[in-house]
Design a protein around this nucleic acid. Sequence first.
DNA 1: CCATGATATATAAAATGCCTATATATAGGA
DNA 2: TCCTATATATAGGCATTTTATATATCATGG
Lengths: 112, 112
Amino acid sequence: MEPIRSQVKRGSAEFAILSVLADQPLHGYEIAKRIERQTQGLLVFNLASLYPLLYRLEKRRWVKASWDTSPQGRRRRHYRLTAAGKKQLAPLRAEWRLFFRALNRLAEVARA
Amino acid sequence: MEPIRSQVKRGSAEFAILSVLADQPLHGYEIAKRIERQTQGLLVFNLASLYPLLYRLEKRRWVKASWDTSPQGRRRRHYRLTAAGKKQLAPLRAEWRLFFRALNRLAEVARA
DNA sequence: CCATGATATATAAAATGCCTATATATAGGA
DNA sequence: TCCTATATATAGGCATTTTATATATCATGG
């Protein structure tokens, strides 16, 4: 299964990150891998794309990061959703849902 | 109903144009209005965004344009899908469908 | 023991996609 | 006469994501 092209998935990275963080706190590298695995390789975001995005979310106080150390002694940043971040998720989901609905009205994407 | 933010709809303009042109040939201004009406105001693309996009599609030979004159005597460009453009539509729909499916695996967008 | 791939974070430069602003021009309604 | 709708067009700019590059440790296989 080939990954969705960036032209199509553009705009979804932030939503994808917040969504996987809603299930559980993760460190940066794991966020990327989890998005990829959970979508069976359909959604693949470059790690170099995700780090700046994580800093942006942190600046907005939607996620909170803290350094920890892996069992192998590697330093890594642990990200978790803040209360403010959780509040963003529902309206974001709603907007994506409306977007899908709108495209379906143009093209019958869902059941084509 | 507020329009979908460009952050979210980003990447969908080309698909939206090809989709409405699949139903019938239209001129540029009508393409924009039709997308807006058909999605009940959810998808709104600026006209200034659409014209360069139409030229790009024309260059790729996915659409073919010809000048005509409105009943009011106004000059306008009439766009229609070429055979090549029609061929693009099915795989594009498939890709959008997969994209939706992928996001649903992360966030239950469809039935949240 | 050394190469390779996985884990882990980070920044710079570039490409892409859409928006805002601006310009031009005609028609119709208030 | 002014505003809105119709109709096309270009320039400048911002936001999002990619590619390229850098650094460093751990595990596996040859």
